[in-house]
Design a protein around this nucleic acid. Structure first.
Length: 742
DNA sequence: GAGCACTGC
């Protein structure tokens, strides 16, 4: 565990001082100095009633002092939902519908929708807005003229489960009147009038129906999450609403930011619906913690010994940290032995194999306590029953994008207030709960951002720009963004699209650009797929494209079998580079009959492979639309490599005396140590992506010849810049092409 | 010789 990911930046002063007024600057500095020395030396004055009991178990240095500061307001006590028996099912369902917080507002809400084109609906989870409002609209006749109601969700599972629930409530078969539409799966039919879908799916629908003519209502749900797709939808829907006055637009969001949504939609009214949730007491540490991982472990034990029954949810930033924390917890429990009750320690993160993930949902055995150690996955994507305590160190990993270098990085960042409150809310779903924050109240007030930076400002926008262009939006710099992306991000995207031949010099979409927009992948991948027609290798290129779009690592590397896993990986190596290795893995997996056993034996992630297969099938289905025929290179990998080069000539690097430099920007870059070419050092190569971790790494690299660049992109490269002035001075063992090495 | 937050088309 690298030290820098564990150290928490000092960022606060003592809460007690804060309460008696803002401390003077001098006092602050003194306190900061003092706190720096005093980390982790706190008494145990809190929870005084239980003090004697746990001091017998934990040493005094092993406890952390928390101060109760605020309470996350609960709403009125919820009526226990009636538990339906088979016979009374429909009646029960209607009773449950009537018991939802949104129900008393039904008429008022419908009236507001009738008199306003755009309505912002503010409501917390549990208000019933997602399941009920579309039903109200249906009952009110909004789907009578053969028109549909769309309700978008940021996640696939949400779209599926909400649709299933609504179908049950309406007593219809899922896929008939009520359906869902997500990538790889369309569960709708001619009869479908309530359509739950992912936000990205509705965005794609603009390509075939730019005016959304078949919809009478569009409801953008969970708008506060500000996903990239939701943000683009805002701009497009606002525009459509202007020339379709009969279209109703609903923007549903948590309490956050509704005023901004309202302003964006020309001061649309905000309709508030109360939520339903139990109160959560918020505790802060009295002083900052230097080592938050250690502080987490100590706090969990402290909760375990001093607090009444109820499971604990801990938020950490990533797999490595979670594994470390779980080990530390289990270690200490073992040492404490029978002095404490049983503590079940369970990790959860997206890359954890499904059977391990399922364990967190098993009920806690009587007398024991469950601790779930999670990434942000537990913040929105999944809900664990029985959580009463949340432990929040206040960090998360966040992607950021530097448009000047085109480089992505993933860094540990303090989370926003919004995120901290979302985490705290996880403690109040079944009963009143407690949230322990491993930072001070002062830090919360003064150092955390209000909200997380929206995704649109942290990501590359190549395919978004391509999509908008193909919708006829030419002036992107003046597109109506709720929060505009950095100017440089748009500029780089336009520049790359121009280089790829998707845009002409007037910035208009070309024929090839129009085709590229049809494929749901990044522009360079799109271009590569189009180029496979010329090199007669679309079968192989589809596989490469699918494998590259699975951004998880394909290879599984468990800690206890590192040597085996690395051997398995090396066995897939083929001369030429990583794209061919990916092709090799997929081909062998296909030959095994897409077997999960094969994946297990070869240390390959089954889930990633299944996803690659889904992507590949979808892309194959779209080939006809972009006029590419199915063809195979029959083992002539030069053709595959040339087709890849036709898409990725913008991402090239050459070996110089001082290592690799990108050809155009002259940035110093390195081959990633996991690459099959790590020890080869070819003279010319292309890379799939640049990532900044400990260095500027090229991930997924392929050896190429400089002459191919002139072949595939004569408009972009001139022969002169591809001459290699240092070729003869290169050391003998490096800088040779594979052909020379034999 | 490094390291993979989470989504989505």
């Amino acid at each position: 565990m690298p030290e820098e990911t564990r150290g928490q930046p000092a960022r606060a002063v003592d809460l007690v001082e804060e309460e008696s007024g803002a401390p003077g600057e001098e006092q602050r500095r003194w306190e900061e100095a003092r706190l720096g020395a005093a980390a982790l030396k706190f008494g145990a004055r809190d929870a005084a009633s239980q003090e004697p009991k746990y001091q017998l178990v934990l040493e005094e240095e092993e406890t952390i002092e928390f101060v109760r500061a605020t309470q996350l307001q609960g709403d009125e006590e919820p009526a226990a939902p009636p538990s339906p028996t088979q016979a009374q099912q429909q009646e029960c369902i209607q009773a449950v519908r009537r018991s939802l917080p949104v129900f008393p507002f039904r008429e008022e809400l419908l009236a507001a929708i009738a008199s306003h084109q755009v309505l912002i609906i503010e409501g917390e989870t549990g208000s019933g807005k997602t399941t009920q409002i579309p039903q109200y609209l249906f009952e009110e006749g909004y789907t009578k003229k053969g028109l549909k109601i769309a309700c978008t969700q940021p996640r696939r599972v949400a779209a599926m489960s909400v649709a299933a629930r609504v179908a049950r409530e309406m007593g219809v078969k899922l896929g008939n009147e009520v359906g869902y539409s997500i990538r790889f799966e369309d569960c709708t039919s001619e009869r479908t009038v309530l359509r739950y879908m992912t936000d990205g799916m509705l965005l794609r629908e603009f390509l075939s129906e730019p005016d959304l003519a078949s919809y009478s209502v569009v409801m953008v749900d969970e708008a506060h999450e500000r996903t990239l797709h939701t943000d683009i939808l805002f701009g497009l829907i606002k525009d459509v609403a202007r020339f379709r006055p009969e279209l109703k637009v609903l923007v549903a969001s948590a309490t956050l930011d509704t005023a901004r949504f309202s302003t964006f939609f020309d001061d649309a009214p905000v309709f508030r619906i109360p939520g339903r949730r139990f109160p959560v007491d918020i505790f802060y540490t009295k002083a900052p913690e230097a080592d938050y991982l250690e502080a987490c472990v100590v706090s969990v034990l402290q909760i375990h010994v001093t607090q009444p029954p109820g499971d604990v949810l801990v938020f950490l930033t990533g797999q490595e940290e979670i594994e470390a924390a779980c080990e530390m917890l289990q270690d200490r429990c073992r040492r404490l032995g029978s002095k404490i009750r049983e503590l079940l320690v369970l990790p959860i993160y997206a890359n954890l194999p499904s059977d391990m993930q399922a364990r967190i949902f098993q009920p806690t055995p009587p007398g024991a306590r469950k601790v779930v150690v999670a990434t942000n996955i537990a913040e929105t994507s999944l809900t664990i029953e029985g959580i009463i305590y949340v432990l929040d160190p206040g960090f998360c990993k966040q992607k950021s994008y530097n448009p000047r270098t085109g480089m992505e990085s993933l860094t540990v960042t303090p989370c926003s207030k919004a995120s901290a409150n979302q985490r705290a809310g996880r403690a109040g779903r079944v009963a009143a709960g407690k949230c322990f924050r491993l930072y001070t109240a002062w830090a919360y007030q003064h150092e955390l951002e209000e909200t997380t930076v929206p995704e649109i400002q942290r990501t590359s926008l190549g395919n978004v720009v391509l999509l908008l262009k193909s919708l006829g939006i030419h002036d992107l710099m003046h597109f109506d963004f709720l929060d505009p992306p950095p100017y440089e991000t748009l500029l780089l995207a336009l520049e790359q699209l121009y280089a790829l031949g998707a845009l002409n010099h007037l910035g208009e979409l070309t024929t090839s650009g129009r085709k590229m927009a049809e494929l749901p992948v990044d522009p360079m991948l799109s271009k590569m797929i189009l180029a496979s027609e010329k090199y007669s290798c679309s079968e192989e290129i589809l596989t490469v494209a699918a494998m590259l779009s699975v951004n998880n690592s394909i290879f599984y590397r468990p800690k206890d079998k590192v040597v085996h896993a690395d051997n398995a990986r090396v066995n897939f190596f083929l001369p030429g580079g990583d794209h061919l290795v990916l092709l090799n893995v997929y081909t062998q997996w296909a030959e095994s009959g897409y077997s999960s056993q094969w994946c297990y034996e070869n240390f390959v992630q089954f889930r990633s492979m299944r996803r690659a297969r889904d992507v590949r099938e979808q892309l194959e289905g779209l080939l006809e639309r972009v006029e590419v025929g199915l063809s195979s290179c029959q083992g002539d990998y030069i053709r595959v490599r040339k087709a890849v080069t036709a898409g990725y000539f913008y991402h090239t690097a050459r070996l110089t005396r001082s290592g690799y430099r990108t050809v155009k920007q002259q940035q110093t870059v390195f081959i990633h140590p996991n690459s099959s070419l790590f020890e080869e050092q070819p003279r010319w190569l292309l890379y799939h992506e640049l990532v900044l971790t400990t260095k500027e790494f090229m991930r997924q690299v392929l050896e190429i010849e400089s002459s191919w660049l002139l072949e595939v992109a004569p408009h972009y490269y001139k022969a002169k810049e591809l001459e290699d002035p240092h070729a003869k001075k290169m050391p003998k063992k490096t800088g040779k092409t594979r052909e020379e090495l034999g």
